[in-house]
Measured scan of single mutants.
Amino acid sequence: LSQDQINEYKECFSLYDKQQRGKIKATDLMVAMRCLGASPTPGEVQRHLQTHGIDGNGELDFSTFLTIMHMQIKQE
């Protein structure tokens, strides 16, 4: 990932990090990914979360979000 991409991801991540705690809700993951041009299915989002041990009510930090985005873009 280039620095530009990382900055773009950070900007989008921040939109969903409403309390500015450095985390977004798992329920916002799909929308955040789509905001960056990825098109994950609900099943793919579920798999990404399970891979990282996050349940549907959990939260993920930016580095986890980056990893998930990277995996998603590689497979699209």
Rank of each mutant, 00 (worst) to 15 (best):
Leu1Trp: 04
Leu1Cys: 13
Ser2Ile: 08
Ser2Pro: 03
Ser2Tyr: 08
Gln3Asp: 10
Asp4Gln: 05
Asp4Met: 10
Gln5Trp: 06
Gln5Asn: 11
Gln5Met: 14
Gln5Ala: 12
Gln5Leu: 12
Gln5Ser: 11
Gln5Ile: 12
Ile6Thr: 09
Ile6Phe: 09
Ile6Gln: 13
Ile6Glu: 11
Asn7Val: 09
Asn7His: 12
Asn7Ser: 14
Glu8His: 10
Glu8Met: 07
Tyr9His: 06
Tyr9Arg: 02
Tyr9Met: 15
Tyr9Cys: 14
Lys10Ser: 08
Lys10Phe: 10
Lys10Val: 08
Glu11Gly: 10
Glu11Pro: 02
Glu11Trp: 05
Glu11Cys: 06
Cys12Arg: 11
Cys12Gln: 09
Phe13Leu: 02
Phe13Ile: 01
Ser14Glu: 09
Ser14Met: 10
Leu15Gly: 09
Asp17Asn: 02
Lys18Asn: 06
Gln19Asp: 04
Gln20Val: 05
Gln20His: 10
Gln20Lys: 09
Gln20Ala: 07
Arg21Leu: 08
Gly22Thr: 02
Gly22Gln: 05
Lys23Trp: 11
Lys23Gln: 11
Lys23Phe: 10
Lys23Leu: 11
Lys23Tyr: 09
Lys25Ala: 11
Lys25Val: 09
Lys25Leu: 13
Ala26Glu: 03
Thr27Ser: 09
Asp28Phe: 07
Asp28Ser: 10
Asp28Thr: 05
Leu29Phe: 01
Leu29Ser: 01
Leu29Val: 09
Met30Lys: 14
Met30Asn: 07
Met30Ile: 11
Met30Glu: 14
Met30Asp: 13
Met30Gly: 15
Val31His: 11
Val31Ile: 10
Val31Met: 13
Val31Lys: 09
Ala32Asp: 00
Ala32Trp: 01
Ala32Ser: 06
Met33Ile: 06
Met33Leu: 09
Arg34Ser: 13
Arg34Gly: 14
Cys35Asp: 15
Cys35Leu: 14
Cys35Trp: 12
Cys35Pro: 04
Cys35Phe: 12
Cys35Val: 11
Cys35Thr: 11
Leu36Pro: 02
Leu36Gly: 10
Gly37Ile: 01
Ala38His: 14
Ala38Asp: 06
Ala38Met: 14
Ser39Leu: 05
Ser39Arg: 06
Ser39Asp: 09
Thr41Asn: 02
Pro42Gly: 15
Gly43Ala: 08
Glu44Leu: 01
Glu44Met: 03
Val45Arg: 04
Leu49Ala: 03
Leu49Glu: 00
Asp55Tyr: 03
Asn57Thr: 13
Asn57Lys: 13
Asn57Met: 07
Asn57Ile: 02
Gly58Trp: 01
Gly58Asp: 08
Gly58Lys: 12
Gly58Glu: 11
Gly58Gln: 05
Gly58Tyr: 01
Glu59Phe: 02
Glu59Ser: 06
Leu60Val: 12
Leu60Ser: 01
Leu60Tyr: 01
Leu60Trp: 00
Leu60Ile: 11
Asp61Asn: 15
Asp61Arg: 06
Ser63Glu: 14
Ser63Tyr: 02
Phe65Cys: 02
Leu66Met: 13
Leu66Ile: 11
Leu66Thr: 15
Leu66Glu: 13
Leu66Ser: 09
Thr67Asn: 03
Ile68Asp: 00
Ile68Cys: 09
Ile68Val: 12
Ile68Gly: 00
Ile68Leu: 07
Ile68Gln: 02
Ile68Lys: 00
Met69Ala: 11
Met69Gln: 05
His70Arg: 14
Met71Leu: 12
Ile73Val: 03
Gln75His: 03
Glu76His: 15
Glu76Arg: 13
Glu76Thr: 11
Glu76Lys: 08
Glu76Ala: 12
